[in-house]
């Protein structure tokens, strides 16, 4: 048996987005009305509270001795409860990065109009175990001059604007 053009021809009917939006075919619209409040739990709760204080906190696994960031109550490799809290630095190095011309919903940024592309990166935080990264944004740097291993430092919101969120760090910027 081959799968042929003839066999698949009537399995699906091709439409354009306009066919749907302009009512050439019937459709139904729905926007789910759902909101969530996710409990932070002890590990992320403390992490966010410390971000509000302008500090980054990690947690140590006493079995593999990794210093884990974001902090977690169990080590996913050793499968044991983690040990003490450890403050780490707000500096680190760029592990890998991207120059994004799109937003989260695949909407295009107006790059030609002067909008700076997003430059998210995985940043290995100083004081955490080598290779331990977090996702954050880079700024105050030419996107095309970012490189692997670039040293960066957190730029914090002013204390009165911090709410205990990952966005209390505005972004990371290069340091010498």
């Amino acid at each position: 048996m081959e799968i042929t053009d003839k066999m698949v021809a009537k399995t699906a009917t091709k439409l354009s987005a306009e066919d749907i939006q302009k009512g050439k075919v019937l459709s139904v619209k729905w926007t789910p009305n759902l909101k969530y409040a996710w409990d932070n739990g002890p590990a992320l709760g403390r992490y966010l509270a410390e971000l509000k204080n302008g500090r980054i906190i990690a947690k140590k696994c006493n079995k593999c001795h990794r210093i884990l960031i974001p902090p977690r109550m169990f080590c996913e490799l050793c499968w044991v409860p983690t040990g003490e809290w450890v403050y780490v630095k707000d500096t680190g190095i760029v592990n890998t990065w991207v120059i994004s011309y799109v937003d989260w919903k695949a909407g295009r940024l107006d790059i030609k109009g002067g909008v700076r592309p997003f430059t998210p990166a995985v940043i290995e935080i100083d004081g955490a175990t080598k290779g331990m990264g977090i996702l954050h944004l880079l700024n105050e740097v030419d996107p095309w001059k970012i490189y692997r291993g670039m040293r960066v430092k957190a730029v914090w919101k002013p204390p009165e604007e911090r709410i205990g969120a990952i966005t209390d760090i505005k972004y990371f910027k290069p340091v010498e």
């Binding site: 075919v25 619209k29 789910p32 932070n40 002890p42 966010l48 205990g164």
Partner: peptide, 30 residues
């Protein structure tokens, strides 16, 4: 240390709010 640390004050219990920001248009089909 215990896996679950006991909260001392109810104000220690924090949460993060969010939503799934999607909407849908369903074709009604053949």
């Amino acid at each position: 240390m215990a896996l679950i640390e006991r909260f001392q004050k109810v104000t220690d219990v924090t949460y993060w709010e969010g939503q799934i920001p999607m909407s849908y248009i369903y074709t009604v089909g053949r």
